[in-house]
């Protein structure tokens, strides 16, 4: 059955007609064109689809879109500031080698954000736990963990980010 839902998506209120059996992941990727949220398994086993719902990291592949009614959703596309400047976590992942193929990255960064919002001074164990549901095949996690630690230690200052004007990498 279709119904209308209202929620805040990356800071903007939206109102949209959806089908009740859509997952949030489907809504984001297929209907709203927000392809930054990835599908790695569709079964809650990989975390590539992680988004924040009212600040909590959830698997959007196991979350019905209809349940976002009235909630505040943050996806990777909404993390940078309005003027395009990157969130410290994004900067840190870029600067510290937290990104290789990048498929796990949006989910990783959002899981990390949920953690830091809740606990600004996490230990290494806290960090590992927060990322435990996000699989990564490329990095062995080490530089991802370091990327988050760098934000915790406020080691992110001026960075070597290479920003090309063209901005596409496909």
């Amino acid at each position: 059955m279709s119904r209308e839902i209202k929620f805040i998506l990356n800071g903007n209120p939206i109102c949209i007609a959806i089908e009740e059996h859509w997952t949030l992941l489907y809504l984001l990727r297929e209907k709203l064109g927000l392809t930054g949220t990835k599908e790695g398994c569709g079964r809650g086993e990989c975390g590539a689809c992680t988004v924040l719902v009212d600040g909590l990291a959830i698997n959007s592949c196991l979350y019905f879109a209809v349940e976002t009614d009235g909630k505040n959703i943050l996806t990777i596309e909404g993390l940078a500031a309005e003027d395009g400047s990157l969130h410290p976590l994004q900067k840190s992942f870029i600067e510290n080698g937290g990104i290789q193929c990048g498929f796990c990255t949006p989910g990783m960064i959002l899981s990390a954000k949920a953690l830091l919002d809740e606990n600004p001074r996490p230990t290494e164990t806290d960090i590992k736990q927060a990322l435990a549901g996000n699989l990564c095949r490329c990095t062995g996690y080490v530089q991802i963990i370091e990327s988050i630690e760098a934000v915790v230690d406020k080691r992110i200052e001026d960075i070597n980010v290479v920003v090309r004007e063209t901005g596409d990498s496909d």
């Binding site: 927000l34 392809t35 930054g36 949220t37 996806t75 990777i76 596309e77 993390l79 940078a80 990157l86 994004q90 900067k91 992942f93 870029i94 600067e95 080698g97 990104i99 290789q100 990048g102 990255t105 949006p106 960064i109 960075i159 070597n160 980010v161 290479v162 920003v163 090309r164 901005g167 596409d168 990498s169 496909d170």
Partner: peptide, 14 residues
């Protein structure tokens, strides 16, 4: 940093 990292960190990489 990897030259494509910004796009990957922002969800723009396709």
């Amino acid at each position: 940093s990897k030259v494509d990292a910004v796009d990957k960190a922002t969800g723009r990489a396709l």
